[in-house]
Amino acid sequence: MNDHSLIIKQVIGKTIKATRIKQGLSQEDLAGLCQVDRSYISLVEVGKNEPSVSKIFELCQGLKISPSAFFKIVEAEYEKLKQNHND
Rank of each mutant, 00 (worst) to 15 (best):
M1H: 08
D3I: 02
S5A: 15
S5I: 03
L6S: 15
I7D: 04
I8W: 03
I8R: 09
K9W: 08
K9T: 02
Q10S: 10
Q10T: 14
T15V: 13
T15Q: 04
T15G: 03
I16L: 10
I16M: 09
K17G: 05
K17L: 11
K17S: 11
K17D: 12
T19P: 14
T19M: 13
R20I: 12
I21G: 11
K22R: 13
Q23T: 05
G24H: 09
G24R: 01
S26H: 06
S26I: 08
S26K: 02
E28T: 12
E28Q: 09
E28H: 07
D29C: 04
D29R: 02
D29A: 05
D29F: 05
L30F: 07
L30Y: 08
A31G: 12
A31C: 00
G32E: 10
G32T: 06
G32P: 02
G32Y: 05
L33E: 08
L33T: 02
Q35V: 04
V36Y: 05
V36Q: 02
D37Y: 08
D37N: 11
R38T: 09
R38G: 02
R38E: 08
S39W: 09
S39E: 06
Y40R: 07
Y40A: 06
Y40S: 08
I41P: 01
L43M: 09
V44Q: 03
V46Q: 04
V46A: 00
K48S: 05
K48P: 00
K48E: 06
N49D: 10
P51A: 01
P51R: 00
P51D: 00
S52L: 00
V53K: 10
V53P: 09
S54G: 04
K55F: 12
F57P: 00
F57L: 12
F57V: 13
L59K: 01
C60L: 01
Q61E: 13
G62W: 12
G62R: 09
G62A: 04
L63R: 07
I65L: 14
I65M: 15
S66M: 10
S66L: 08
S66G: 14
P67W: 05
P67I: 03
F70S: 07
F70P: 05
F70C: 03
F70D: 07
F71P: 00
F71Y: 15
F71L: 09
K72E: 14
I73Q: 14
V74N: 02
E75P: 00
A76V: 03
A76S: 14
Y78E: 09
E79H: 08
K80H: 03
L81S: 07
L81V: 08
K82T: 00
K82A: 00
K82W: 00
Q83H: 12
H85V: 06
N86T: 00
N86Q: 11
D87Q: 10
